[in-house]
């Protein structure tokens, strides 16, 4: 890194430039400086309990669970900020409902976040995973991973 005399022109060596660009890319993708970044959240719900999970609002979530359900039709893959989404387990299958559950005091999710309510009335625990890719998955960027 040098500051040359006279006009005080700032110049950066190739090594530092590469480091800054590399770390910048990691920051943009990894920490979601231009968006929420990639997400992966797995929650285990024990029988008779309820778990509350806040997730960034957005489309394109991938949902998987280790109980019987049809992820394409049942799961909430689009989450709207401020809304609450309910999952439950009944007779060994995952059930879903949208909105604030009756007779429950719900704390508003933080700004820009949606909330998942995961309850379990089955005999065994189940786990639910929400995954989201980072925002840079546009066609040209992904040409090496087709």
């Amino acid at each position: 890194m040098t500051v040359s005399g006279g006009k005080q022109r700032f110049s950066l060596s190739e090594d530092w430039l590469a480091t800054l660009i590399g770390l910048g890319i990691v920051a943009i993708i990894g920490f979601g400086l231009l968006g929420p970044g990639g997400q992966s959240k797995t929650t285990v719900v024990e029988p008779g309990t309820t778990q509350v999970v806040d997730l960034p609002a957005g489309d394109g979530w991938r949902v998987t669970a280790d109980v019987d359900f049809a992820p394409d039709t049942t799961a909430f893959t689009s989450l709207t900020a401020g809304l609450v989404y309910q999952y439950g387990c009944q007779d060994g299958s995952l059930t879903t409902a949208e909105g604030v559950p009756d007779a429950l005091t719900v704390e508003q999710p933080p700004r820009g976040m949606a909330q998942l309510w995961l309850s379990n009335t089955c005999d065994t625990a189940y786990s639910l995973t929400y995954k989201h890719d980072s925002i840079l998955r546009w066609p040209l960027f992904g040409i090496f991973t087709r």
Binding site: I25, I29, G30, G38, K131, D133, S134, L136, F141
Partner: peptide
């Protein structure tokens, strides 16, 4: 997922 993106 992020590692995959950084890898790209």
């Amino acid at each position: 997922a992020l590692v995959a993106e950084i890898d790209t």
